[in-house]
Every structure is written in structure tokens, then in C-alpha cells.
Amino acid sequence: MSDRESWRPGAGIATLRRRAALLAGIRAFFAARGVLEVETPVLSRHASTEPHLTSFRAAGAGGQRFLHTSPELFMKRLLAAGSGPIYQLARVFRAGEVGRWHNPEYTLLEWYRPGLDEHALMDEVEALLRRLVPALAPAERLSYRDAFARHAGFDPMRADVAACRRAAARLQLPPLAGPAHDRDLWLDLIVSHVVGPALGRDGPCFVHDYPASQASLARLRTDAAGTVVAARFELYWQGIELANGFHELTDLQEQRRRMLAENADRQVRGLPVMPIDPHFLAALAHGLPACAGVALGVDRLLLCLEGAESLDAVMAFADGRV
């Protein structure tokens, strides 16, 4: 990009019109279903403890704040306060995430449905996609285990680090620099390089029943094969991950335990320990209604619809232009 042209938006005006139509379509879908649009703060005194997320810090006269990586905790406080079903089109911020399919600032559609489990929420995600893309092929549902069986040729629920390492070599992945003694790291490598890019080629594909070690904020349950799995799903389309959803964890003690474990993991990795949000834990103590929630990347959805090569082509000003 020459300096003379760098003032221009990455997305063409026609794309920006379709972006606006997409946002209007999302709002119409939820209005028709009686889901309340909400807005929650971008700035918080607390931040995500997830080791793989880096929050931007903002300093001002009022003291330090963090830019949110997702509106999840604020929205769960609204649910605990009795909001009923809610959605938000939020601008979220993730430091260090820059690439064809990543921008440090992007638009996340996040919504919560009291009373639904993750499979019922997958139905609603598919209904939303169909509202936005009437010609959409039927969505497929595949367990994490079956997705690996099909595209990587091994059982991710039983494989240890050595088996994952052998699978990566068999799949001809480039060698991994540095030590790698973490099973989830190998599964993440194989998902991001092999399994994910193969998914959703004929239509949207929901992957569900994640390893318990990757539960994040999902509850755990036992699947038909007797394996403890996370009630979590992801949506892939055209090889790109579009959404992540949970049958949400509502148990205070388990939630606190996971946040502390994440902070302990941060310490091991030499990352800063993040302040755990006491308001969120208090909301759980008060009682979060049983619910399912999902976050969908709006920019990536538009990228899929436009057949674009990178987010720069669907955002007015991606990171290289700001």
C-alpha cells in the first residue's frame, strides 16, 4: 500500500452497504424473536483470565481500565438480574491478533438464551444464518471427535502428547519451534492447520462436544461414549471459524476454580495475572439462569459472504490503515 493511497478504506463502498444490511438483518432477526438489544461497557477494571487472550490496557485520569475482549461477563450480570434473552453487537479488542482473519478490533455478535442448551442454540444460529443468507446449504453437526477422525485420522479424546506429535508429523505439518508438552497445544495446532480449514466447505458446520480441557466457560457432561466433554460448540464455514458457543457454566465454585486455574496457568507462562471480576462472581452467587450463549464474528461472516481474501477487504479501516 503506497502512502498516497493509505487513506482509503479497505472495504469498497458497495461492501460497506452490504455490511450495513447485514447488521440491519441481525437486528431484525432478534427483534422478531423478542431478544433484547443491550449495550455494556467497553472499559472495565477487570479483564479476561484466559491465557490465550491479551487485553489492551487503557490508562486515564480515573485509573487503569482494560478494553474488553468480549462482553460476556457484563451480559451474564444482566441475565442474573433478570434481563431474559439478550443480544449485543459489540466492538471487542484483542491485543496481538493480526492476520488475514484477525484484527485487534472487531465486531462480535453475542447473544444469550435462558432455558436453551447448546444444541437448541445451534438451531437458532442456523436460523439466523438462513435469515441472512436465504440460499444457505443445510448445516452439518459433527462432534470434535468425529471432525478429527474425518480430517486428521485419530481420536483426540484418547491421544496423548506423543500420539498428537506423531499425528502432526503424519499430517506433514511444519515442525513446531520450542518445547510442546501440552496436549491442548497439539490439538490447537492440528485444529488450526488441518481440521478447521477442512470444515464447512459445503455449508456451515457445527463442531460440538469439545475436550473437557477446552471447556472455557462451558459446563461439562458425559457423552454417549462415556467421555466427559465440554458443552461447547464452534461454527465453521468455508474453513473459517465464525462462532463459539456454550451451554453456560452457572456454578460459582467451578467458575472460580477455573478462573484461578487460568491465572495460575498465566503465571507458568510468564503472563500477567488478571484481576478476577468480583461483580461477575457475585452475580453467579445470586444465580445465573440456566442458559446457552454464543459469540459470532460479524466481520468474518461478511468475509465469507463476500468471498473476500482478508478482513481488510470487509472492514472500513483494518489495523494496517489506522
Binding site: 484466559e50 490465550h52 496481538g96 491478533e97 493480526v98 492476520g99 488475514r100 482473519w101 484477525h102 511444519p174 491442548d184 497445544l185 490439538l187 490447537d188 495446532l189 485444529v191 488450526s192 492447520h193 478447521g196 477446552q214 472455557s216 464452534e234 471459524e241 463459539n244
Partner: peptide, 14 residues
Amino acid sequence: NEFVKPGKGQAFNR
């Protein structure tokens, strides 16, 4: 240099 990251997990630079 390509940045890849699964939804919730470890990010990689390929």
C-alpha cells in the same frame, strides 16, 4: 508470516 488461532486456544505463527 501467517497468524493462525483456533477460537479459544493457542495462537500460532506459521
